[in-house]
């Protein structure tokens, strides 16, 4: 389908929806809530403290798949977009603040906090932008959650946090915020390459009874509507996101679980090899996009 055909279809769709809204009167959604990705070159956070580009050139390894790499923020409605423009409006920051508090909290048999070794949490600047990456031993691809638990168990003598537990999500939020504005830049060569290949294969695999791949929605149909949902490119630079639907921060793998489940498939577990591989591949598709975490999505 050409861009013009797409645009015409979308226009017809808008007219149809506007008509339906007018007809039922019970819908409180403004007609402008459903639209093409908005034409905003940057997300201006805190009155310009952060100016985050919303569209970047695709890296070489995604050129064939995407003509342009776009933030999911562009696909959300005006109210949702506005919430991310001010850290006081962004409910995700409450969770990041809790994580920052935990950073300084001593736990475990060694009497240490994160700060005991890493000093101020600002030392984590850049970490989020390079995740996931190979561990120090070079034998496994780790997400940020794996690094956090490695520290907790082996340095602090503390209990592991479950992947999607509140303290884990708070901590990944707090660490991600330190990288806000830095471009996504993951290593996909060397020992990470086989992980990347595996993640790419997953991206194009049509799972479940609905036989849908990530690409069906997020590569072939971004910008289109699936019922009331405006499909984005499924970029992960905004994670962890504050999701209005959950009234909580949501991890990358938590979202993966939901997407695969929604194809009527047996999903993979958060933290699984499969989802870490997919995380690497998706991070590489978003190369160059700024870290938005904690972003706001619906």
């Amino acid at each position: 389908m050409t861009m013009i055909e797409r645009a015409r279809k979308r226009r017809m769709h808008r007219n149809l929806v506007a008509g339906a809204v007018a007809a039922t009167l019970s819908w409180t959604v403004a007609p402008g809530a459903i639209a093409d990705p908005v034409d905003e070159p940057t997300i201006e956070v805190n009155g310009g403290e952060f100016s985050l580009p919303t569209r970047v050139e695709p890296a070489d390894h995604v050129k064939d798949a995407l003509p342009e790499v776009m933030s999911g923020w562009l696909f959300r409605d005006a109210d949702t977009r506005a919430m991310q423009l001010d850290d006081f409006e962004n409910q995700g920051m409450i969770f990041a603040d809790s994580g920052a508090e935990a950073w300084d909290t001593v736990e475990g048999t060694e009497g240490k906090s994160c700060a005991s070794c890493h000093n101020d949490i600002e030392s984590m600047k850049g970490v989020r932008a390079s995740m996931p990456k190979m561990n120090e031993a070079g034998d496994d691809l780790w997400s940020m959650e794996n690094f956090i638990n490695d520290c907790r168990v082996n340095r602090m003598g503390a209990e592991e946090w479950a992947w999607n537990s509140q303290p884990m999500k708070n901590m990944t939020a707090a660490i991600s915020v330190q990288s806000r504005g830095l471009p996504m830049d993951v290593a996909i060569d060397g020992p990470a390459q086989s992980w990347w290949e595996k993640g790419k294969e997953m991206y194009y695999t049509r799972f479940g009874q609905l036989e849908m791949s990530c690409a069906n929605c997020h590569e072939d149909n971004y910008g289109n509507m699936i019922r009331a949902d405006h499909l984005s490119q499924g970029q992960i630079n905004g994670f962890p996101v504050y999701r209005l639907k959950d009234s909580n921060v949501v991890s990358i793998h938590q979202r993966f679980v939901g997407c695969v489940r929604d194809t009527r498939a047996e999903t993979f577990k958060a933290g699984s090899e499969e989802f870490r591989a997919l995380e690497l591949y998706l991070a590489s598709r978003g190369e160059g996009l700024p870290i938005e975490g904690v972003s706001v999505r619906h």
Binding site: Q209, E211, M212, R264, A265, E266
Partner: peptide, 24 residues
């Protein structure tokens, strides 16, 4: 086609039990 088969029972990759995320 992206369209799911609405009267189709097999040949799926990781078939699940409806929208539970569990295997079937």
């Amino acid at each position: 086609s992206m369209m799911p088969g609405f009267y189709k029972g097999e040949g799926f990759i990781r078939p699940g039990d409806g929208y539970t995320g569990k295997a079937a």
